[in-house]
């Protein structure tokens, strides 16, 4: 299992190298190579998580090591889908190092042993966690697209077309991909929150219990809801939308990690280390 994880990390790192080489040299075989390596890494990663599932008999999310690994897994997963839909090839230059970094971090964190937990076998909980993580991965990608957008917009506004102009795609493609990612993320987050409510109701008898994680999830949801609302009504797009996507991801990161590490609540056990 450990060796499988090392292979996964290796795949992700090679994919990163491939994408960076593509950024500089602009040969399409490098992009294809990076893509296939990322796919390879994703499959190994899936097997790693699958093994964890089989070994413990439940979704492996009862310590920081496993939880982070699952969250990282969602990033290439969503990326492969987004790449297929929007064909934003250069985004790999963000997605590949992102997941590589997460996995290196995961590798550093010792795997705290936790007692087998029956609640992790619940259908509602499994779908709650998976769907939320996929949604968060989509938001992570939206932030990455936002960074690319800001770079390209700056290039065009300042009229200095040195490095990025020809290497990055059009603003329109970046904007619509970022928007697409946020729509996907928001839908999944909504679905994830609903499954969470249903689960909470079945376990604690109430939908909402003012747990810090719940509160911050609510704040994140409202943030992205506002972003989408403004886009549809007054046309918040381009630069503003890109900046908000990046800030939103910051809020999300706090909800995901900060709350567990700094505040108390009934989600803490998922990130024990």
């Amino acid at each position: 299992m450990k060796s499988l994880m090392i292979i996964t990390i290796l795949f992700y790192m090679l994919s990163t190298a491939g994408y960076f080489a593509y950024l500089f040299i602009q040969k399409s075989f490098l992009q294809r190579g990076g893509y296939l390596l990322l796919l390879g890494g994703f499959l190994c990663h899936t097997m790693t998580i699958g093994c964890g599932f089989l070994q413990s008999g439940h979704l492996p999310v009862n310590n920081l090591h496993d939880t982070l690994s699952l969250a990282g897994w969602a990033v290439p997963g969503v990326f492969l889908g987004v790449q297929y839909r929007f064909n934003l090839k250069i985004l790999g230059v963000y997605a590949a190092p992102f997941v590589a970094l997460v996995m290196v971090l995961v590798f550093q964190i010792p795997k705290a042993s936790a007692p087998a937990n029956d609640i992790l076998k619940s259908f509602w909980l499994i779908s709650h966690v998976t769907v939320i993580f996929l949604g968060e991965a989509a938001f992570a990608l939206a932030a990455g697209v936002g960074v690319l957008y800001l770079l390209q917009e700056r290039t065009i506004k300042t009229k200095k077309h040195r490095f990025f102009f020809k290497r990055l795609p059009s603003l329109e493609l970046l904007d619509s991909t970022g928007y697409g990612c946020i729509v996907i993320g928001f839908s999944l987050l909504t679905l994830g929150l609903i499954t969470g409510f249903v689960y909470a109701k079945s376990v604690w008898g109430r939908f909402w219990s003012w747990d810090p994680k719940e509160v911050w999830s609510g704040i994140t949801w409202l943030f992205y809801a506002a972003l989408l609302h403004e886009r549809l009504t007054v046309g918040w797009r381009g630069r503003k939308s890109a900046i908000m996507a990046i800030i939103g991801f910051g809020v999300l990161l706090f909800t995901f990690l900060g709350v567990n590490l700094l505040l108390e609540g009934h989600h803490v056990e998922f990130t024990k280390f």
């Binding site: 390209q152 102009f165 020809k166 795609p169 059009s170 603003l171 329109e172």
Partner: peptide
């Protein structure tokens, strides 16, 4: 032969980077 070297082609190249198509 990749990059535009006339005013009107440079404008087209820029338009494509802004609007995609």
């Amino acid at each position: 032969g990749d990059r535009a070297v006339s005013i009107s082609y440079a404008a087209i190249e820029l338009g494509k980077k802004i609007f995609g198509s």
